[in-house]
């Protein structure tokens, strides 16, 4: 098993970030170790797919390693890393559809993948949401971000973010009623 030297494990994150920015591979490894659970969890909520989530997480950490010298303030590492992760997910969505951020009129009424009355879990319910709505919902609930923060991170207008979260929440509630009852 690979191990970082113990002083990296005990070091405050801004210090480890500064060391990684100077090309220290052990510091990079330590940052991956510390932040992997968060980033992989975020992608699992976005995608609902464990393998895809780990692939995208790996890409995010490789981009982090390549760009970390451009991070001027090491205390802002978490927000900077989240920005890379969200951009990675948006790029992935754009490869699936150039207009990923558009919600078709009839998309809100997409036929459920499960028959009514069947319990589904959160990831299934999220997967039924249009891509852009899912991003807003995950950032609002999983990351507990405010609407202006989500707008700044995704580049979507604030009003659009608010509307996506309101509609997405209503849709999730509707789909998860049976799930809640079955717990």
């Amino acid at each position: 098993m690979r191990e970082s030297p113990s002083h990296y494990r005990e070091g405050p994150e801004p210090l480890v970030v500064s060391l990684a920015a100077r090309g220290d591979r052990h510091a990079f490894e330590e940052l991956v170790r510390r932040r992997q659970g968060w980033i992989r969890g975020l992608f699992r909520r976005f995608s609902g797919d464990v393998t895809l989530a780990d692939d995208l997480s790996q890409r995010v950490f490789l981009k982090m390693w390549r760009r970390i010298r451009s991070l001027k303030d090491p205390t802002k590492f978490a927000g900077w890393l989240k920005q890379i992760a969200v951009n990675e997910w948006i790029d992935h969505q754009r490869k699936q559809s150039a207009r990923w951020d558009v919600v078709a009129e009839d998309n809100e009424l997409v036929a459920p993948a499960t028959t009514p009355g069947t319990a589904i879990d959160l990831d299934q319910a999220l997967a039924e949401l249009p891509a852009v709505v899912r991003v807003c919902i995950v950032l609002a609930y999983h990351e507990r971000m405010t609407h202006p923060e989500i707008a700044a991170l995704t580049g979507l207008p604030s009003g659009t973010v608010k509307s996506h979260i309101r509609r997405g929440s209503a849709r999730l509630r509707e789909r998860l009623i049976d799930y809640g009852d079955s717990q």
Binding site: G37, G41, L122, Y141, H147
Partner: peptide, 30 residues
């Protein structure tokens, strides 16, 4: 946290299992 979040949905998100750290993942990235 957003003041507009639905409390029931927030509780459901909070109950979701946390992804456990994996040394294999770290080794793959390195």
């Amino acid at each position: 946290m957003s003041d507009h979040n639905d409390p029931d949905l927030q509780a459901l998100f909070d109950q979701q299992p946390v992804v456990q750290n994996s040394e294999a993942f770290v080794a793959d990235v390195i």
